[in-house]
Design a protein around this nucleic acid. Structure first.
Lengths: 153, 153
DNA sequence: GGTATATAGTTTACATATAAACAAACTTTT
DNA sequence: AAAAGTTTGTTTATATGTAAACTATATACC
């Protein structure tokens, strides 16, 4: 369904370009809400899960610095401080000082590993269920288009 | 460029479906940041501009209720309260009581109309510049794909 | 060695987002 | 008409996001 129908807009959108932009926005927002519903029962937010995933798959046993997390999540350093604060409060990550004492090393706790084991397979199925309405060729086209857009931003 | 390269990920992503999902997220986030930079010099946030646009094009002279704005922006009613508060503080919208006294009628002020006149053409050009890296067929495919995704969420 | 510069993380102030509980006003049911 | 239910907007608590100013530490350069 078009956004115009979905939102019951009086007027059509100004251009195909604008329509595509708004489609990206609204769809990403709706996916994010679905993710919130999915992670809620596990006591996590979607962003917290993202950080845990990154620490597991990109950090391994060594962990990641907050600066690297900031880069991986494409968010402000200040934001990472708060995100790590809350995960630490909930006993899911540990902050330790690195040799270079400007850095914090962030590592997952056993509790986080156990939680991830419980969620990850289910998450993979959920992603395939949601994104599976698109054919492989459509998924590839979507990835290509998003890549092109990001490249010139 | 692929997300894996862009973020210098150690490992490839778990599935094409996951890759497509993350592409949507990261691209929408990056577009939002570009929008912030664009609107900053006008003293607006991207969300404030979106609300003003909706009030102008969908509300006309009559204005819109907060409930309708909530539906149009696909955000919580509580969030609309704050958004309208800040626009009202900045003299860009007016709250008036409707006949049905549960409703607030939100209308643009002259100041908002003047501001919109200054921004809108420039905004249209910016959107075409950014989204213009995609061919019309790619834009259409993107819109179709996003529509399909939203339909089953 | 000492100064300048860069980098990492934190703090503050603010905007945007949600859920849940609430009050006020309307509608439906009986 | 009274009770029950629905809708609208607000408040509160909390999470996530930014920019700017700050501290601490490390590196580069003279």
């Amino acid at each position: 369904m078009s956004l115009q129908e979905e939102l019951h807009l009086d007027k059509p959108l100004a251009s195909v370009e604008h329509e595509a932009l708004l489609n990206l926005y609204y769809t990403a927002a709706k996916l994010k809400k679905r993710a919130s519903e999915f992670f809620g029962p596990y006591g996590l937010t979607d962003v917290q899960f993202q950080m845990i995933m990154l620490l597991h798959h990109q950090g391994g046993a060594k962990g990641l610095s907050q600066a690297r997390l900031s880069e991986l999540m494409q968010v402000n350093r200040a934001n990472v401080t708060g995100l790590v604060d809350r995960l630490e409060r909930d006993g899911l990550v540990r902050r330790t000082a690195a040799e270079d004492r400007r850095y914090n090393i962030i590592q997952l706790t056993d509790k986080a590993h156990r939680l991830l084991d419980k969620i990850e397979a289910d998450y993979g199925r959920e992603v395939k269920k949601v994104m599976g309405v698109l054919a492989k060729s459509e998924l590839a086209a979507l990835i290509r288009a998003c890549g092109k857009l990001r490249e010139q931003l």
